[in-house]
Simulated assay, not measured.
Amino acid sequence: MSPVSPLPMLLILLLVLLWVTVVSRLLRLEPQEGRFKSIDGLRGYLAIYVFLYHSILWYFFLQKGQWISPPPSVIHANLGAICISLFFMITAFLFFSKLVNARTKQVDWVKLYISRILRIYPVYTLVVILMLLVVGMVTNWRQQESPGQLLLHSGQWLLSIAADVNGVKGTKLIIAGVVWSLAFEWLYYAALPLLGLIMGVKSPWYIWMMALFFFALFVWIIWIWYPANALNKALAFTGGMLPAFFARNHQVRKIASHWMISVLMTAVLVLAALYSPYIYAPLTYFCATFIFVCIACGNTFFGLLTWKPSCLLGQIAFSLYIVHGLIYFVAFMLIMGMPAAKAQQPLAHWLTTGICSLVLVTICTLSYKFVERPCVAASERITARAKRYLEVE
């Protein structure tokens, strides 16, 4: 069996859909109803593909001692770029839509930013703490840099900077290096008031000051830490902004929901996966944009995206995305040990990935119920307090 074979990936996906249903039922969790249910379902599949994609990277890392990204597979290299682009498009669509709607409903900037912080930082901070504990285990709890450097490098992670901590080269691999995408997400959130200016959306002075500061900060972070294909990656956000103008049009949604559009989406996905000359090529961008526009306008991809297990998976997508690297590192480096993990044949590697998927879904469902959901629910209360402090309505 090839380490890049799609068959074990499909089987693990089916296992994940079954397991998330079982765990959610045990925890009495139901998928939350959203205005864009297809997008909610899409999130879960994107997160699981990233999980499986990183399993391939781990296989070659164990064999060659190098983190080879993209992997030596045209299909997975292109699909990986498409998945990340679709993640960015989801963010752009959901939040740019608020600017489009500002003609009839004013943007509540305080609530928007507080809800984003509470949505991302609780789980992300826990993951960073766990990563630092792993760093301590790897270094046998010996301090290998000065206290000031240790504090600085640890704190940089809270700004989405993948710094090496305590002398551990490639610290970011402990969480599969996914932190770079958060820097782009925060850049987009900071850019929203600037985009609002173009559309005639007014913002309070303190929102402007904050937006300008953080926009400059994350431009600098990306420029220094994540320059590779940075402009092409950022371009993906524009693909998510397009459907914000017409996704609520009944006629457009009717056309986009037709089964023939689902067939066309499949063809476009195959075209991008097989024939894009390199990741983040124009063909990749246009194909990903077409697929996303269809989904944002209501296409359910033959009902798959609105299927209950899909929505349950989408509900825990952020935890899946941010936690899975830790699961791999602990499994391959701490539990199995690198020599044993390296000796695995592709079939054994995929079996290990399947076991990791069960652990991951369980942890992430618990994380959603006891960390993510309570923090998001607290955003209304915290927003009200912040507004009283700022003396705004």
Rank of each mutant, 00 (worst) to 15 (best):
L152H: 03
I114Y: 03
S146A: 11
V135D: 02
R119T: 00
Y113H: 10
I161E: 14
E145Q: 13
F95C: 12
I161N: 15
L132H: 03
V110N: 09
S154A: 14
V127P: 01
T125H: 05
L159Y: 12
Y113M: 09
I120Y: 01
S97C: 05
M137D: 13
Q149L: 04
V107L: 04
S154I: 12
F95I: 11
R116T: 01
L158W: 11
L118W: 03
L94K: 14
S97Y: 09
T139W: 14
L94S: 14
P122I: 00
T139F: 11
I161R: 15
A102N: 08
L132V: 13
P147T: 01
S115K: 14
S97L: 08
I114K: 02
T125Y: 07
L159A: 13
T104F: 07
Y124W: 07
G155S: 06
N140G: 12
V128Y: 06
L126N: 05
N140L: 13
M137S: 13
S115I: 01
A102Y: 07
R119I: 00
N101A: 10
R119H: 04
A162I: 07
L152C: 00
T104Y: 08
I129P: 00
Y113F: 14
N101V: 04
I117N: 05
Q106E: 11
K105T: 14
Q143Y: 04
R116N: 01
I161K: 14
I117H: 02
L151V: 13
L118Y: 05
Q144T: 11
S160N: 11
T104R: 08
P147K: 00
L130D: 00
V135F: 03
R116M: 01
F96D: 08
L126K: 03
S146R: 06
K98F: 08
M131Q: 08
V138D: 10
G148Q: 13
A162D: 15
L159N: 09
F95R: 12
K111G: 10
Q149E: 05
Q144N: 13
V138E: 12
V127G: 00
L126P: 05
L152Q: 04
F95H: 15
V128C: 08
S115A: 13
L159M: 13
K105P: 09
V138P: 01
S154E: 11
I120W: 01
Q149Y: 02
L132R: 02
G148L: 12
V100K: 06
P147W: 01
